[in-house]
Nucleic acid binder design. Structure first.
Lengths: 195, 195
DNA sequence: GTCTATAGGCAGATAGAC
DNA sequence: GTCTATCTGCCTATAGAC
């Protein structure tokens, strides 16, 4: 029936996205090919093209799904953690989880390749960062107004500093394969906001 | 005479490095080709291979020269600026200059592509970061002991936080083409060390 | 040192059988 | 949906003339 066909197609598309996502987070968008992805799935390149007509479409779908998952994780933090400081710690924890999988943040690595990306991928990358800054800004503003956080400058400036600080900590830690490096930088970053 | 020939060869090699450096800092190592570089120099790909036998050798030469220049700039800061806070500001200024040229830090962009790099390039990238942390650690340790800087934790942990914070600020600012974003994050980062 | 010419491989992508 | 076969183009790299 239709539902089965739809499910099946969706499953395959999801598996393609799963493999592509991991490869891109490790090697960058310019560091992967349809051949790489197909080989890991024991499929042919032609089959991939059935699900995603071109690399640009695959890349865009990758970011859209990644951003949606990240948004879900932020909602989950809001549901489970009440205080601003706890939310920021949980936020940094999301990054640590990615790094534990020996991956870079998808949009962090795409930011590095930004100039080579097709326009839809560029826009989706920016949107991811904007969404993160929006969420962080809200957390910081609330923490500031209820006196649980102390920081100088505007909440949105502080939010941008957190985002870029965590992205940078991931970027530099990865060559060393050293999670501690990230944790130390992240802890210091949050401490400077919660002192 | 020999000196002329040597000079000429050196000049050409330097021009190749100049063009390659700019392209890699904008597009990443996997985002450039011998064809790109050759076209900008109105040369053929074959001529490039005369100066640098393969892309791996070109890439390594790129990092070595970049790191040497950076080391020179740090020496220059040491020569001209006495106080720790001033040195850190000048250090952040080096990054701002790179960003103004619409470039990413060479080793920052290579860190993103780390898994795809040949071993010599990996080692040279790590060395660049290590050199930076070493210099920053010295500045921070001295500033701490003469009470011009106040920060928690070890100087080397703080040094790593500065390095990754600045790299991250460059990374995230570039898609927005927004130097202000970098400046704001950099200022906040240094303020958290000098308060 | 720089060129032309070319090798050999892999990239993204498409046609068409099943 | 997935396959085989194939196209076109670009990639890194080399040979050899000038």
């Amino acid at each position: 029936m239709a539902a089965t066909r739809l499910r099946k197609q969706t499953d395959t598309a999801q598996r393609i996205l799963d493999v592509s996502e991991r490869l891109v987070q490790r090697r960058g968008f310019n560091g992967i090919s349809y051949a790489n992805v197909a080989a890991e799935l024991s499929m042919t390149k032609a089959s991939l093209h059935y699900h995603f007509p071109g690399k640009a479409e695959l890349g865009e779908a990758l970011i859209v799904r990644y951003a949606a998952r990240f948004a879900d994780a932020l909602q989950e933090i809001d549901r489970r953690v009440a205080d601003a400081r706890g939310k920021l710690n949980a936020y940094a924890g999301l990054y640590a989880d990615v790094l534990r999988g020996k991956r870079m943040c998808l949009c962090g690595i795409l930011a590095a390749e930004y100039e080579t990306l097709p326009t839809p991928m560029r826009k989706a990358t920016i949107r991811f960062f904007d969404d993160n800054v929006t969420w962080l800004t809200r957390v910081l503003a609330r923490g500031h107004s209820d006196k649980t956080l102390t920081f100088d400058g505007s909440p949105s400036d502080a939010a941008q500093a957190i985002l870029s600080g965590l992205e940078g900590a991931m970027l530099v830690s990865r060559p060393y394969g050293d999670l501690e490096r990230f944790q130390s930088a992240a802890a210091r970053l949050l401490a400077s906001l919660t002192s």
